[in-house]
Simulated scan of single mutants.
Amino acid sequence: MKSIPISILIASAILGISFIIGCLLLSNQESANEPTQVAQEEVTSDKALMTIHETAEYLSMTEEQVMSIIRAEQQSFTIAGSFDGKMFPFIKVQDELFVSRIELELWVQNASTYHRRYINGQMQ
């Protein structure tokens, strides 16, 4: 039987220990990030009103897309004088828009049911 040189055994041991330490560091990093995300989601889900930024995150959209929906529905209402279905649920306080979380969920259901389309800032 051939003997394995001691340098190969030492190198293998160092490599194995490095691998284990690296895995432990990565798992600690991931678990440290999770509470922040969970805490942020809990805050958003407990709030009655959300900012446009929070609303965009909640809907997995950009702020520009949310504002485009609001403008499209407002334009449609202004032109027609009425609006079929549920309009995007926002209120304006001074110059800032806030969105009702509960009403937003109802709006999503309504918009999904009627397959609304928002293209280039207009309702289709």
Rank of each mutant, 00 (worst) to 15 (best):
L9D: 11
L9W: 15
L9I: 15
I10F: 14
I10T: 10
I10G: 06
A11C: 04
S12R: 14
S12C: 10
A13L: 15
A13M: 15
L15Y: 14
L15F: 12
F19P: 02
F19H: 10
I21Q: 11
C23E: 12
L24M: 12
L24K: 13
L26D: 05
S27Q: 10
S27C: 07
N28W: 14
E30M: 03
S31Q: 14
S31A: 05
S31I: 07
N33P: 03
E34F: 04
E34R: 10
P35T: 06
T36H: 13
Q37Y: 07
Q37C: 07
Q37L: 15
A39F: 09
A39E: 13
E42I: 03
E42Y: 01
E42N: 07
V43Y: 02
V43H: 03
S45F: 05
D46P: 01
K47C: 09
K47V: 09
K47E: 04
A48V: 08
A48C: 03
L49G: 02
M50V: 08
M50P: 01
T51E: 03
I52G: 00
E57L: 02
Y58V: 01
Y58L: 05
Y58K: 05
Y58C: 02
Y58D: 00
L59Y: 05
L59N: 03
S60L: 11
S60I: 08
T62A: 10
T62Y: 03
Q65I: 00
V66H: 03
V66I: 09
M67A: 06
I69Y: 00
I69Q: 02
I69G: 00
I70G: 01
I70Q: 01
R71P: 01
E73C: 00
Q75S: 14
Q75V: 14
Q75I: 15
Q75E: 13
Q75A: 15
F77V: 10
F77M: 14
F77Y: 15
I79D: 13
I79G: 11
A80Y: 09
S82K: 06
S82Q: 13
S82H: 07
F83N: 04
F83I: 04
G85C: 13
G85L: 12
G85V: 11
K86V: 07
K86D: 08
P89Q: 03
I91R: 05
K92I: 06
Q94L: 13
Q94H: 12
Q94T: 15
